[in-house]
């Protein structure tokens, strides 16, 4: 027996096929790099982001400069490639600047909701039954509102403005985020390796930090990426209703609502801000789909 027990001297299974060790994130990155559709739309998203950042360099005119004589001019009028709006401001410049508030309103609420909702969800999923019930039943209440309605209710009551709009949107996304994180955490929590970690003598915080988060971050991130386009849409809707971004800040939703009054004069210009919202949102959506399928690695 002691003869056979001397195994460690030679490594067992050394001959087994050595796969390339890439790790989870390595695999995800590899898949993304080989997904032309996602790469393409990701590039557009990047362009939109760059456009927002370098708006002052790109915009041909000052987006705030009004002019009584230049009101509602057609495309190409005196260097105004896309014409002017009802206050005589250059439409192209306003469209370029409009990317700023759209991206901000798309990303900030999602980031807040991911942090707060994710934290609540991990607590709810890992803590005992009572804490879980308190958190999740509260979330259920917010879930009982259609998202647009809740966003309108909260920002409608608080009044317009970008900060109020972002707060309202974050509040709308927190419950959904919380659910995603809670489900993922509860799933991980029931797996043996958590019990194994407990058996090692690790405390709750250490286990959450090293064993739970790594497994929860994936689904949370996937969901967050899909929320960005929802957030952009909802934010532009709020601005359209007179909530969210306040005039004279250039914002696609706001532009849509003011240009709409001149629909018979400049119908094409009137549709442009909406097209910008649509393109941005669909690109984020497709990128998010790409990330989702890239991250769907069976382990």
């Amino acid at each position: 027996m002691s003869q056979t027990a001397a195994l460690p001297a030679t490594f067992a299974d050394e001959t087994s096929p050595a796969e390339r060790v890439r790790g989870y994130w390595g695999t995800v990155g590899y898949r993304l790099r080989h997904d032309p559709v996602t790469l393409f739309f990701g590039a557009i998203v990047l362009l939109i982001v760059l456009m927002a950042i370098f708006a002052p360099l790109l915009a041909p005119f000052d987006p705030y400069k009004e002019s009584v004589v230049l009101r509602l001019k057609p495309w190409g009028y005196r260097g105004h490639t896309l014409g002017t709006d009802e206050l005589g401001r250059d439409l192209l410049s306003r469209l370029i600047y409009g990317a700023r508030s759209s991206l901000l309103m798309g990303l900030v609420p999602v980031a807040i909701a991911t942090f707060l909702g994710g934290t609540l969800g991990v607590i709810g999923g890992y803590a005992g039954r009572r804490v879980n019930a308190v958190i999740m039943r509260t979330m259920d209440v917010f879930y009982a509102f259609p998202s647009v309605l809740l966003a309108v209710a909260i920002s409608g009551a608080m009044g317009g403005g970008m900060v109020n709009g972002m707060t309202a949107l974050a509040l709308v996304f927190i419950p959904a985020m919380c659910r995603v994180a809670e489900t993922a955490t509860a799933q991980v929590r029931s797996l043996d390796f958590i019990e194994a970690a407990r058996a090692t003598g690790a405390g709750t915080l250490t286990i959450v930090r090293y064993h739970v988060l790594g497994n929860v971050l994936g689904p949370v991130f996937i969901y967050a990426s899909s929320l960005v386009s929802v957030s952009i849409l909802l934010a532009s809707g709020l601005s359209f209703l007179g909530l969210g971004v306040k005039p004279p800040t250039p914002d696609w939703g706001l532009m849509l609502s003011t240009l709409r009054q001149s629909i018979y004069v400049v119908p094409l210009s009137c549709a442009l801000p909406g097209a910008a919202i649509f393109v941005t949102s669909i690109c984020f959506n497709l990128v998010s789909d790409g990330i989702r399928s890239a991250m769907d690695v069976r382990l």
């Binding site: 359209f240 849509l256 801000p273 949102s281 984020f284």
Partner: peptide, 9 residues
């Protein structure tokens, strides 16, 4: 991805 009110417009 479509802003529904824009579709209306």
């Amino acid at each position: 991805s479509l802003p529904n009110y824009w579709l209306g417009i």
